[in-house]
């Protein structure tokens, strides 16, 4: 398998697993408008995942469904941040702020890369992700600068997910070899500037530097991914060859 395949799968898996977690909020969000908003955000993420996994599949003779439904846990290359359980609504908004800000910076670079397909997917996704950042920002401000209870929960969520943000900016040999890949390490400074500006304005305090989890890019995941995949893959595996 090629470096381009591996790289595209990383991007596609981030979007796919994020979409699955976002979709879990539908009918469980604190208000109807939020069910709808998160439904649409999840659909954007799923659309990005489909384009990326279709492309990856085309590079080695598989379909998007083969990649989504018939790979094992250790073959998934998503960030651990994307697979963590939803927690409360503050956790959902903290994750969306961290992840969408990262995706925005990444896609902004990728849209000018030499690979036409990746550039096309990124050029489209960057506009959608900008709305995700905006949505998360408004909620972090509202919860952080809200009641004592909402502030406490927002602070807890920002801190709980912070140790999973370092993985987003890891460079490795694959990134070094593949010319079209965006090196995420240099994006970190701008990511921190944007995210910390929101945290400051929300009256929450900045999470302290801490141990950073890693492993998703090489297929080492938290215990939670297996359960997520069981749900995601169950129908397709129970009825092989079914179409809908």
């Amino acid at each position: 398998m090629s470096d381009l395949f591996d790289y595209t799968v990383r991007l596609g898996d981030d979007a796919l697993i994020a979409a699955q977690r976002t979709a879990e909020w539908i009918a469980a969000a604190p208000q109807l408008e939020e069910d709808v908003a998160l439904g649409n955000i999840g659909l954007d993420q799923l659309g990005q995942a489909r384009s990326l996994l279709q492309y990856a599949g085309s590079l080695d003779g598989r379909t998007e469904d083969d990649l989504a439904y018939f790979r094992e846990e250790r073959e998934f290359r998503n960030l651990q941040l994307c697979e963590l359980p939803n927690g409360d609504f503050a956790h959902a908004m903290a994750r969306l702020l961290y992840f969408a800000t990262y995706q925005h910076l990444l896609y902004e670079e990728l849209r000018t890369c030499a690979d036409e397909t990746l550039a096309g997917v990124a050029g489209k996704a960057v506009k959608e992700v900008a709305y995700h950042v905006d949505h998360a920002t408004q909620w972090v401000l509202r919860l952080g600068d809200g009641t004592e209870e909402s502030h406490r929960r927002m602070q807890a969520a920002l801190e709980a997910l912070w140790p999973y943000t370092g993985e987003m900016f890891e460079s490795d040999e694959l990134i070094g070899r593949l010319a079209v890949a965006v090196d995420p390490a240099p994006l970190r400074a701008e990511w921190e500037r944007r995210v910390l500006a929101v945290i400051d304005e929300s009256t929450c305090s900045r999470p302290e530097a801490s141990y950073q989890h890693t492993g998703g890019r090489s297929g080492r995941h938290t215990e939670h991914l297996g359960y997520l995949l069981a749900e995601l893959q169950h129908v397709a595996r129970s009825h092989p060859g079914a179409t809908w």
Partner: peptide, 30 residues
């Protein structure tokens, strides 16, 4: 474009039913 920061949109969207410019956003996602 309603993106790029925490600032809410200014109220420039006219009601398609009565034409009033006095409208407010309920949710960024419909």
């Amino acid at each position: 474009r309603a993106v790029g920061g925490p600032v809410m949109l200014s109220l420039t969207i006219r009601c398609p039913l009565c034409g009033s410019p006095d409208t407010s956003e309920l949710s960024r996602f419909g």
